[in-house]
Amino acid sequence: MAQEHKLEIFRGRWKFKSNTQKIWGVLVFLTLVTAVEVILGIMKPSSLVHSHFLGMKLLNWIFLILTIVKAYYIAWDFMHLRDEKSSLRRTIVWTPVFLISYLVFILLFEADYIYNVLSDGFISWNF
């Protein structure tokens, strides 16, 4: 017996009558998020470009967050993660989070070591 797809998005706050309406609703949502990214990329407001947060421009943080929102929503809705058990959802989400965090740690640690060797060691900057 085939399961019925849930016809709501945003955790049940917006409900649709058919799958076709839901697909159009999701398309509109993803299009709006992408349009905001494109508009910000074209305009590049100086208030977002010249202000920094945790060593990165605020505009880049906005791009990063909106991209994660789109990726999360695509996985949640189109890959039907919302219908899976919470342990599978956690496995899918936390594994890349852990691996990316580990990779960033290694890259920063090694970059600091290389910088210290090249600035204080016998090897000079010859790039």
Rank of each mutant, 00 (worst) to 15 (best):
M79C: 12
D77M: 06
L103S: 09
L107D: 08
F105H: 11
D112C: 07
M79P: 03
A111F: 13
N116P: 00
S86F: 11
I114S: 10
S86Y: 10
D120V: 00
Y102H: 04
Y72M: 05
Y102Q: 05
Y102N: 04
A111W: 10
V97R: 02
L107H: 05
N116Q: 15
N116A: 06
E110K: 12
E110Y: 14
A71N: 04
Y102D: 03
L108P: 04
V93G: 01
V117D: 11
V93M: 06
G121K: 13
D112T: 13
D83I: 00
T95I: 15
L107N: 10
L103R: 04
V104T: 13
L118G: 01
S87T: 14
M79S: 08
F78Y: 15
Y115A: 08
P96R: 00
D112V: 12
S86Q: 10
V97Y: 01
K85I: 07
I92S: 04
A71M: 09
T95K: 08
L107E: 11
L118R: 09
V104H: 06
Y73E: 08
W76T: 05
F78E: 12
R82A: 02
A71P: 05
W76R: 06
L118V: 13
W76H: 15
V104L: 15
R90Q: 07
V104F: 15
I100Y: 10
I74W: 00
S101C: 01
N116I: 01
V117I: 15
L88Y: 15
F98K: 08
A75I: 07
R82Y: 15
K85T: 03
I114Q: 14
N116M: 08
I123P: 02
V97C: 02
P96V: 00
D77R: 08
V117H: 07
W94T: 05
L108A: 09
I123C: 03
A75C: 11
I123N: 03
F109P: 01
Y113E: 05
V104G: 05
F78R: 11
L108S: 10
L88S: 09
Y113C: 01
F78V: 09
W76E: 04
E110M: 10
S101G: 02
S87F: 12
D112L: 13
T95L: 15
W76N: 02
Y102E: 03
